[in-house]
Every structure is written in structure tokens, then in C-alpha cells.
Design a protein around this nucleic acid. Structure first.
Length: 497
RNA sequence: GCGGGUGUGGUGUAGCCUGGUAUCACUCAAGCUUGCCAAGCUUGUAACUCGGGUUCAAAUCCCGGCACCCGCACCA
């Protein structure tokens, strides 16, 4: 009777997310959000901001441009490290990284060579295609950043930002002044970033236009610990796989104390790991066994990261643990580089001590996290349910008259009117009551309020719980207060009489 | 980017080999009905990925674009 249900088709059918520009045949790696998806994403961002800005009074939301001048990206290292010199075989068309070919042959680094030098070197070494022995073409660059022509002649070279982080670094000096020269100082940006992926696949996992939520914490590594309530870490466990633990199949929870002792991680780093874990496990309600920190080895991580852990979640739609976020200790790399290239002083003075602040970066993929919510909370029991936490569901409440009858409909409409101003609420009369419950299950609405004949007698309505389908009766007058408590989590459905 | 496979209403599909009115289910909308978990009845909306070629005639055969899936490569 029921059709097969899966997350992908539900996401399209119910208005969460799908490929952009479908009617013209789309481009790979670009996605649009529908009404449900946009709402879910917005709520995720709100919860994120609330949680991470709440860590310190001196953490703030800012915004910055998505187009950046070339010089700033030269300084950040993206112009060089985001560009790969590629050389194609003229016969079979296979592409190789030119510098790797030379390095493999000679054992010497070829990273510094210009295109012409690479060409000359390839000829000198008589290198040919590794696959078919065909002759190689000239070396070309492939840049992961999207170039933008600025101005009428397009003469000013600029790029779409490959990460939001730079916006915080470029504005560091001004914010430090505005926010009264205190450390730590946190600058959060939620916005688009762009990467011209060669072959984006796996749905929203690798997008060319993506949304990042990043918090750059500028701090003095020697005093940062003093700002934190390190007591919170006592006895708490982190789900982590360090480089040393690779190969073991299970992710072992490790206490914060042990992680600090064994891995030599700074207190402040582990403290923020704990906070990120709390965010995913409690705010997003991910199950423990599907969550882990995954340490990147020196080879795997970006050169500027001193310490780098990915936050990975086990997603059935993507076939295993996938990176959703990262926590990176970037040292003073970014500000030093910008000081060097821009000639602007990034050094600050705190209590007589001069330093270039270090950066702890908390970086989140918003699209990936939203997708993870769908993946994790989707269940095909009944006819498809999204068991989203109430704080994230697109609609928090739905109000129904039991039947399309003149005596029930206006009462239900009244209730909808009183709730809709403060909560995301849907009113629906169409179809049987069961069908309306099922529709709400599919988009994750946690609570349905139904007006029935008993409402006319004694002024009570039923509240139905999405996950258990249980119903409880409450007085109409108490709905608004109760709604507030259910949303905030102060009261759960189980607490109701 | 390379090799292979695939592309049909909103969703999931039949039809393609062997060219001739596009199947079925659910969804959605309207009406009737309905005292609590996708009930029933009636009516309706709605599709061959795009472009070119072959043919009297193309969803079907051929070529190309785009997208998706798998493998390789890529993913600071």
C-alpha cells in the first residue's frame, strides 16, 4: 500500500533539498533548499550560534564579503596551495599532477617551480604518461577557487572565498579595537564558501557552493586555559580516534584527562572538543556510536594546522563516517601571514605582553550537518518519520480539527492563531486525521494538537507525540505556556499527565 | 577529468531488446464521506533529461550536451 520511502526522495518530495536549476539540467555540486529545508537550516544556524556564542561574552557574529582580492588569498596561502599544476596525456587524456610526477622521478621537491620550469623539467626527464606511455601536453594550472572579474574591464583579479575564515582574519584589527582589545575574542561567520571541485559527488557531501559556520577564536595560548571552566572536563569522555588509535575498529571513549596526558593536547583544545561533542550529541541528538573525532596526521592536515581533528558522523546515505566539521589549532599562521603581506601590524598588547594572537578554529559544514539531521533522524517505521529535535523541526506544532465540521474548525483556527505568533505552526483540515498525522511525521513536526468533540464539552485538546504516537489531553488555556516549555525542553511529552 | 552504467508525472515505476494511443501505485487538488493514526467513493492536475540525426512515424535506434550511480583520479 505504501510507497517505498527513503531520505533522498523524501527530501525532494517534502521540500527540503534538491539540485539547483533542475529545469535546465543542473550543474554538479549545487543545491537549493525548499521551504522545509530552509527552515531546518535556519534553525540549525540559530542553535549553533546560541551554543557557541554562549561559550564566552566576547564571542560575536560578524559578516564579510564572499569576493576577496587576490592579494588576500596570496597571503592566506590559498592562491598557491589551492592551485595544482596538471599535465594531461595527449593520447589517453589522463591528468597527472606535474609536480608529483617530477618528485617521484627525481625525489626532489618540485613545488616551487613555475609552469615553464615544470615543462622544461618534464622534457628534460623525458617523462611520459604513466598509463599508456603517450606524450604529455603542456602543464596547466587548475585552481580550486572560482575567479571573478571585478569592474567593467574585469581587470581587478578576485576570487570567491574558499572558506569564511579569511573574513575574520582580514577584519581582526578592527574588531579587536571595537571589542575593546580583549582576548580571547571570537568572530563567527555563517555564510557561503566556494570550491571548484573537479568531480563533486555524493550529494550534499561535496558541494561547489557550500555554507560554513565558523568560529575563529583569537587567543593567547598561554592564558587561554584560565578563561575556561576546565572543571567541566572532569570525568567526561570524548569519542575519539587519534592517529595512534587508527586501525582499531571501535572508537573508544577516552576521558579528557587521559586525552590531554597521552596525546599532549592543550587543555583549551580538549575543552572545545568536549563542547563540540556536546553540541552534536545534545543539541542535534546524534547517537553516541555514530559520532567521533578523527585526528588528521601531519601528512593529511593543511600545513598551517598545528592540531587538526575532524568531526565525523556515521551516515547511512553516504556509507560510513563522514567529515561534518573540524577543530583546528592554526597557531599564529594566519595573522602573521597577513601582517607580512599587508604590512599592517597584527601584534597586540595585553597587560604589557605583546603577541600575535593564535587562532583556534571551529569550522562546521552547515549543509552537511543539515543533511546529517535528515540521515540520522529518518526512520522508515510507519510511513516515514523524521525524529528531529523540537528545536530544529521546521514546524513545531500542527493544529487540526478532528473532522471538517463547522463546530470544530473555528476552534482549531483560534488555537492556531494564538500559537502561530510565537511558534512555527501549521493548520490543516484536508484529509483524514491519520493522513494529517502522517504528513507531519514526514516533515518532523514533533507535536500535533487536535480539537475534537470533547474540546467543545470541557475545553481540552489532545497533544500527540510524534515518536510514540501517544496522545494526552491538556486544557486549551494552558497550551501557550506548555508549548513554550516543550520547545525549550523544560518539559517533555513524557512529563505530561 | 577518464572508463562503465543509468535518465519516464511530485515520488517510485512499466514500456525500450522487437519504433506506431505511455502502465501501475502512492502523492497532490476539489467534492462527498469520516468520532484519532496514510479508510472509502467520485472527479481532476501532472511525465518520456536536453539538442541533433535516421524514419511515414522515436520514450524506444544513432550522435552529442547535461545530470546521477559505480570504479580510477581529485578532495589545501
Amino acid at each position: 500500500m505504501s510507497m517505498p520511502v527513503d531520505v533522498q526522495s523524501l527530501a525532494k518530495r517534502r521540500g527540503f533539498i534538491w539540485q539547483s536549476a533542475e529545469i535546465y539540467g543542473s550543474l554538479a555540486g549545487f543545491y537549493d533548499y525548499g521551504a522545509m529545508g530552509a527552515s531546518l537550516k535556519r534553525r540549525w544556524e540559530d542553535v549553533w550560534l546560541n551554543f557557541f556564542l554562549g561559550l564566552n561574552d566576547n564571542y560575536h557574529l560578524i559578516d564579510s564579503t564572499t569576493i576577496l582580492p587576490e592579494a588576500s588569498l596570496k597571503a592566506s596561502g590559498h592562491l598557491d596551495s589551492f592551485t595544482d599544476p596538471l599535465v594531461e596525456c595527449t593520447k589517453c587524456g589522463h591528468a597527472f599532477k606535474a609536480d608529483s610526477l617530477i618528485e617521484e622521478k627525481t625525489g626532489e621537491t618540485a613545488e616551487e617551480l613555475t609552469l615553464e620550469e615544470l615543462d622544461a623539467k618534464l622534457t628534460e626527464l623525458g617523462l611520459e604518461c604513466l598509463r599508456c606511455k603517450g606524450p604529455l601536453d603542456n602543464v596547466k594550472t587548475f585552481n580550486m577557487m572560482f575567479p571573478v572579474g571585478v569592474g567593467t574591464t574585469g581587470g581587478d583579479v578576485a576570487y570567491l572565498r574558499p572558506e569564511t575564515a579569511q573574513g575574520a582574519y582580514l577584519n581582526f584589527k578592527r574588531h579587536f579595537e571595537i571589542l575593546r582589545r580583549k582576548l580571547p575574542m571570537g568572530l563567527a561567520i555563517i555564510g557561503k564558501a566556494y570550491r571548484n571541485e573537479i568531480a563533486p559527488r555524493q550529494g550534499v557531501y561535496r558541494m561547489r557552493e557550500l555554507i560554513q559556520a565558523e568560529l575563529q577564536i583569537f587567543m593567547d595560548p598561554e592564558t587561554f586555559d584560565d578563561e575556561l571552566d576546565l572543571e567541566e572536563m572532569k570525568g567526561k569522555e570524548i569519542l575519539v580516534q587519534t592517529v595512534d588509535m587508527r586501525g582499531t575498529s571501535e572508537v573508544e571513549p577516552v576521558t579528557c584527562e587521559k586525552l590531554i596526558k597521552d596525546s599532549g593536547l592543550p587543555n583549551f583544545f580538549v575543552y572545545h572538543m568536549l563542547k563540540i561533542q556536546e553540541f552534536y550529541l545534545e543539541c542535534m541528538r546524534l547517537p553516541k556510536k555514530k559520532f567521533r573525532f578523527f585526528e588528521k596526521s601531519e601528512k593529511e592536515r593543511a600545513f598551517y594546522n598545528l592540531i587538526h581533528f575532524d568531526i565525523e558522523v556515521d551516515l547511512s546515505t553516504l556509507g560510513g563516517f563522514k567529515e561534518l566539521a573540524g577543530i583546528h589549532y592554526r597557531g599564529d599562521y594566519d595573522l602573521s601571514r597577513h601582517q607580512e603581506h599587508s604590512k599592517e601590524r597584527m601584534e597586540v598588547s595585553i597587560d604589557g605582553k605583546k603577541l600575535i594572537p593564535h587562532v583556534l578554529e571551529l569550522s562546521f559544514g552547515v549543509d552537511r550537518s543539515v543533511w546529517a539531521l535528515l540521515d540520522i533522524h529518518f526512520s522508515d517505521e510507519r510511513t516515514g518519520i523524521l525524529k528531529l529535535p523540537p528545536s530544529l523541526a521546521p514546524y513545531t506544532f500542527a493544529v487540526f480539527p478532528l473532522m471538517k465540521k463547522d463546530e470544530l474548525v473555528p476552534v482549531a483556527r483560534d488555537i492556531h492563531q494564538t500559537l502561530r505568533g510565537r511558534f512555527s505552526t501549521l493548520f490543516d483540515v484536508s484529509g483524514s486525521i491519520g493522513k494529517r498525522y502522517a504528513r507531519m511525521d514526514e516533515i518532523g513536526t514533533p507535536f500535533c494538537i487536535t480539537v475534537d468533540y470533547e474540546t467543545l464539552d470541557n475545553g481540552t485538546v489532545t497533544i500527540r507525540d510524534r515518536d510514540s504516537t501517544e496522545q494526552k489531553r491538556v486544557a486549551k488555556q494552558e497550551l501557550e505556556k506548555l508549548a513554550q516549555e516543550l520547545v525549550s525542553g523544560k518539559t517533555t511529552f513524557k512529563d505530561l499527565k
